[in-house]
Simulated scan of single mutants.
Amino acid sequence: MNPEPPVTSDASKVVTPESLRQKYESGATVDELVAASGLSYGTVLNRLHEAGTEMRTSWQTRRMRQDPQARQRLAAHLRALYEQRGATLTELATAGAGTRRAARRLLIEAGGAVRTPQQTLRIRAAARAAERHKLALTLRARYEAGTTVPELAEDCNYSMATVYRLLHQARTPMRPQHNHGPARDMRKRP
Protein backbone atom coordinates (compact mmCIF):
# COMPACT_ATOMS: atom_id res chain seq x y z
CA MET A 1 0.00 0.00 0.00
CA ASN A 2 1.35 3.42 -1.02
CA PRO A 3 1.36 6.27 1.51
CA GLU A 4 -0.81 9.29 0.86
CA PRO A 5 1.08 12.19 -0.80
CA PRO A 6 1.69 15.14 1.51
CA VAL A 7 -0.83 17.92 1.35
CA THR A 8 0.65 21.03 -0.18
CA SER A 9 -0.55 24.41 0.88
CA ASP A 10 -2.00 26.73 -1.74
CA ALA A 11 0.09 29.56 -0.30
CA SER A 12 3.31 28.04 -1.66
CA LYS A 13 1.88 28.10 -5.18
CA VAL A 14 0.58 31.67 -4.97
CA VAL A 15 3.81 33.23 -3.65
CA THR A 16 6.12 33.67 -6.62
CA PRO A 17 9.87 34.24 -6.41
CA GLU A 18 9.43 37.62 -8.14
CA SER A 19 6.85 38.83 -5.62
CA LEU A 20 9.12 37.82 -2.75
CA ARG A 21 12.01 39.60 -4.42
CA GLN A 22 10.01 42.82 -4.83
CA LYS A 23 9.00 42.80 -1.17
CA TYR A 24 12.54 42.00 -0.06
CA GLU A 25 14.08 44.75 -2.19
CA SER A 26 11.58 47.25 -0.85
CA GLY A 27 12.88 46.60 2.67
CA ALA A 28 11.20 43.49 4.08
CA THR A 29 13.35 40.99 5.97
CA VAL A 30 13.37 37.24 5.35
CA ASP A 31 11.62 36.70 8.70
CA GLU A 32 8.85 39.10 7.70
CA LEU A 33 8.45 37.31 4.36
CA VAL A 34 8.19 33.96 6.18
CA ALA A 35 5.47 35.31 8.47
CA ALA A 36 3.53 36.94 5.62
CA SER A 37 3.73 34.04 3.16
CA GLY A 38 3.40 31.05 5.47
CA LEU A 39 6.40 29.44 3.77
CA SER A 40 9.37 28.01 5.61
CA TYR A 41 12.52 30.06 6.06
CA GLY A 42 14.46 27.82 3.67
CA THR A 43 11.75 28.00 1.00
CA VAL A 44 11.71 31.80 1.14
CA LEU A 45 15.52 31.90 0.83
CA ASN A 46 15.44 29.44 -2.08
CA ARG A 47 12.82 31.47 -3.92
CA LEU A 48 14.73 34.71 -3.34
CA HIS A 49 17.88 33.11 -4.76
CA GLU A 50 15.87 31.67 -7.66
CA ALA A 51 14.70 35.19 -8.53
CA GLY A 52 18.32 36.43 -8.51
CA THR A 53 17.90 38.57 -5.41
CA GLU A 54 21.00 40.27 -4.04
CA MET A 55 20.90 39.50 -0.32
CA ARG A 56 21.67 42.20 2.23
CA THR A 57 23.26 42.11 5.61
CA SER A 58 21.34 43.13 8.70
CA TRP A 59 23.11 46.50 8.86
CA GLN A 60 22.15 47.23 5.24
CA THR A 61 18.51 46.49 6.11
CA ARG A 62 18.67 48.81 9.13
CA ARG A 63 20.22 51.56 7.03
CA MET A 64 17.56 51.10 4.35
CA ARG A 65 14.78 51.31 6.92
CA GLN A 66 16.18 54.38 8.61
CA ASP A 67 16.09 56.21 5.32
CA PRO A 68 13.68 54.65 2.81
CA GLN A 69 14.92 56.96 0.05
CA ALA A 70 18.53 55.79 0.49
CA ARG A 71 18.33 53.20 -2.29
CA GLN A 72 16.96 55.76 -4.74
CA ARG A 73 19.65 58.29 -3.84
CA LEU A 74 22.36 55.65 -4.15
CA ALA A 75 20.99 54.57 -7.54
CA ALA A 76 20.96 58.19 -8.78
CA HIS A 77 24.51 58.77 -7.50
CA LEU A 78 25.79 55.61 -9.19
CA ARG A 79 24.09 56.56 -12.45
CA ALA A 80 25.77 59.97 -12.38
CA LEU A 81 29.18 58.34 -11.84
CA TYR A 82 28.50 55.87 -14.61
CA GLU A 83 27.29 58.36 -17.19
CA GLN A 84 29.36 61.46 -16.42
CA ARG A 85 32.69 59.94 -15.45
CA GLY A 86 32.62 56.71 -17.43
CA ALA A 87 32.87 54.51 -14.34
CA THR A 88 32.69 50.74 -14.72
CA LEU A 89 30.32 48.42 -12.85
CA THR A 90 33.28 47.31 -10.73
CA GLU A 91 33.95 50.92 -9.74
CA LEU A 92 30.26 51.39 -8.93
CA ALA A 93 30.39 48.31 -6.70
CA THR A 94 33.30 49.89 -4.84
CA ALA A 95 31.46 53.22 -4.65
CA GLY A 96 28.65 51.72 -2.60
CA ALA A 97 26.65 49.13 -4.52
CA GLY A 98 28.53 46.17 -3.00
CA THR A 99 28.71 43.93 -6.07
CA ARG A 100 28.74 44.37 -9.85
CA ARG A 101 25.33 42.72 -10.02
CA ALA A 102 23.85 45.11 -7.46
CA ALA A 103 25.47 48.05 -9.27
CA ARG A 104 23.88 46.95 -12.53
CA ARG A 105 20.46 46.59 -10.90
CA LEU A 106 20.68 50.01 -9.22
CA LEU A 107 21.82 51.59 -12.48
CA ILE A 108 18.82 50.17 -14.33
CA GLU A 109 16.46 51.22 -11.50
CA ALA A 110 17.75 54.79 -11.87
CA GLY A 111 16.94 54.72 -15.60
CA GLY A 112 20.48 54.19 -16.83
CA ALA A 113 21.54 51.95 -19.70
CA VAL A 114 24.39 49.48 -19.28
CA ARG A 115 27.28 49.98 -21.71
CA THR A 116 29.44 47.40 -23.40
CA PRO A 117 33.12 47.24 -22.39
CA GLN A 118 34.07 48.70 -25.80
CA GLN A 119 31.83 51.73 -25.22
CA THR A 120 33.47 52.28 -21.83
CA LEU A 121 36.94 52.11 -23.41
CA ARG A 122 35.93 54.68 -26.05
CA ILE A 123 34.55 57.04 -23.38
CA ARG A 124 37.72 56.77 -21.31
CA ALA A 125 39.98 57.27 -24.34
CA ALA A 126 38.04 60.41 -25.28
CA ALA A 127 38.36 61.72 -21.71
CA ARG A 128 42.13 61.10 -21.70
CA ALA A 129 42.47 62.88 -25.07
CA ALA A 130 40.51 65.86 -23.75
CA GLU A 131 42.72 66.06 -20.64
CA ARG A 132 45.86 65.85 -22.78
CA HIS A 133 44.58 68.63 -25.06
CA LYS A 134 43.82 70.79 -22.03
CA LEU A 135 47.34 70.17 -20.71
CA ALA A 136 48.80 71.07 -24.11
CA LEU A 137 46.92 74.38 -24.13
CA THR A 138 48.10 75.13 -20.59
CA LEU A 139 51.71 74.41 -21.57
CA ARG A 140 51.32 76.62 -24.65
CA ALA A 141 50.08 79.54 -22.54
CA ARG A 142 53.00 79.17 -20.12
CA TYR A 143 55.51 78.80 -22.98
CA GLU A 144 54.18 81.91 -24.72
CA ALA A 145 54.46 83.75 -21.40
CA GLY A 146 58.21 83.03 -21.37
CA THR A 147 58.67 79.74 -19.55
CA THR A 148 61.31 77.54 -21.15
CA VAL A 149 60.76 73.95 -22.26
CA PRO A 150 63.14 72.53 -19.61
CA GLU A 151 61.25 74.45 -16.91
CA LEU A 152 57.91 73.14 -18.20
CA ALA A 153 59.27 69.60 -18.29
CA GLU A 154 60.50 69.87 -14.71
CA ASP A 155 57.25 71.42 -13.43
CA CYS A 156 55.05 68.80 -15.12
CA ASN A 157 57.39 65.88 -14.43
CA TYR A 158 57.50 65.03 -18.14
CA SER A 159 60.45 64.57 -20.44
CA MET A 160 61.40 67.46 -22.68
CA ALA A 161 60.38 65.39 -25.70
CA THR A 162 56.88 64.98 -24.29
CA VAL A 163 56.62 68.71 -23.60
CA TYR A 164 57.75 69.48 -27.17
CA ARG A 165 55.19 67.00 -28.53
CA LEU A 166 52.39 68.59 -26.47
CA LEU A 167 53.44 72.07 -27.57
CA HIS A 168 53.39 70.98 -31.23
CA GLN A 169 49.94 69.40 -30.73
CA ALA A 170 48.73 72.76 -29.42
CA ARG A 171 50.20 74.40 -32.57
CA THR A 172 52.54 76.55 -30.50
CA PRO A 173 54.80 78.90 -32.49
CA MET A 174 58.23 77.93 -31.19
CA ARG A 175 61.00 80.37 -30.25
CA PRO A 176 64.43 79.88 -31.78
CA GLN A 177 66.37 77.13 -30.06
CA HIS A 178 68.96 78.21 -27.56
CA ASN A 179 71.78 76.38 -25.93
CA HIS A 180 70.44 75.55 -22.48
CA GLY A 181 73.86 74.65 -21.11
CA PRO A 182 76.14 76.96 -19.11
CA ALA A 183 77.22 80.15 -20.83
CA ARG A 184 80.57 79.95 -22.62
CA ASP A 185 83.11 82.64 -22.57
CA MET A 186 84.01 83.11 -26.22
CA ARG A 187 87.15 85.14 -25.43
CA LYS A 188 89.03 82.20 -23.92
CA ARG A 189 89.88 79.71 -26.59
CA PRO A 190 92.23 76.84 -25.97
Score class of each variant (00 low, 15 high):
residue 73 R to K: 08
residue 78 L to D: 04
residue 59 W to Y: 13
residue 60 Q to I: 01
residue 59 W to H: 12
residue 57 T to Q: 10
residue 68 P to S: 14
residue 95 A to I: 01
residue 51 A to E: 00
residue 79 R to E: 05
residue 90 T to Y: 08
residue 12 S to T: 10
residue 50 E to T: 12
residue 83 E to R: 03
residue 48 L to I: 12
residue 82 Y to E: 04
residue 48 L to Q: 00
residue 14 V to A: 10
residue 20 L to S: 01
residue 80 A to L: 03
residue 50 E to I: 02
residue 96 G to Y: 07
residue 35 A to K: 15
residue 69 Q to F: 13
residue 52 G to W: 06
residue 31 D to G: 09
residue 97 A to P: 08
residue 57 T to H: 09
residue 53 T to N: 13
residue 16 T to I: 02
residue 82 Y to N: 00
residue 24 Y to C: 09
residue 76 A to V: 01
residue 63 R to M: 13
residue 66 Q to F: 15
residue 58 S to Q: 11
residue 36 A to P: 00
residue 13 K to W: 11
residue 96 G to L: 07
residue 95 A to N: 03
residue 21 R to W: 06
residue 80 A to I: 00
residue 98 G to N: 09
residue 34 V to K: 02
residue 83 E to W: 00
residue 46 N to I: 05
residue 77 H to V: 03
residue 27 G to D: 03
residue 20 L to K: 02
residue 57 T to E: 08
residue 18 E to K: 09
residue 51 A to V: 06
residue 68 P to N: 06
residue 36 A to S: 09
residue 15 V to D: 01
residue 84 Q to C: 00
residue 51 A to H: 06
residue 13 K to T: 11
residue 65 R to C: 09
residue 87 A to V: 05
residue 32 E to V: 05
residue 16 T to Q: 02
residue 37 S to C: 13
residue 23 K to Q: 15
residue 95 A to H: 01
residue 27 G to F: 03
residue 64 M to C: 03
residue 98 G to L: 07
residue 98 G to T: 04
residue 47 R to V: 02
residue 70 A to L: 11
residue 41 Y to P: 00
residue 58 S to L: 11
residue 88 T to W: 06
residue 73 R to S: 06
residue 55 M to A: 06
residue 90 T to G: 03
residue 65 R to Y: 03
residue 40 S to F: 07
residue 40 S to I: 07
residue 13 K to Q: 13
residue 73 R to M: 11
residue 35 A to Y: 04
residue 20 L to A: 01
residue 25 E to G: 04
residue 65 R to I: 06
residue 86 G to L: 01
residue 81 L to H: 01
residue 62 R to L: 15
residue 60 Q to K: 14
residue 48 L to R: 10
residue 12 S to I: 09
residue 54 E to W: 02
residue 42 G to E: 15
residue 58 S to M: 08
residue 32 E to L: 03
residue 89 L to S: 01
residue 74 L to V: 02
residue 19 S to Y: 03
residue 30 V to L: 05
residue 21 R to E: 10
residue 43 T to L: 14
residue 44 V to K: 01
residue 84 Q to M: 04
residue 20 L to Q: 02
residue 81 L to N: 08
residue 69 Q to K: 11
residue 77 H to Y: 12
residue 31 D to V: 13
residue 93 A to K: 04
residue 46 N to H: 12
residue 68 P to F: 04
residue 61 T to R: 13
residue 77 H to L: 11
residue 13 K to P: 01
residue 65 R to K: 08
residue 35 A to T: 13
residue 43 T to C: 04
residue 94 T to R: 15
residue 60 Q to H: 08
residue 53 T to A: 08
residue 58 S to F: 12
residue 54 E to I: 14
residue 22 Q to N: 10
residue 28 A to G: 02
residue 58 S to I: 13
residue 37 S to R: 03
residue 67 D to N: 12
residue 69 Q to W: 12
residue 17 P to D: 05
residue 18 E to H: 09
residue 25 E to K: 05
residue 67 D to V: 14
residue 70 A to W: 12
residue 59 W to T: 15
residue 59 W to I: 12
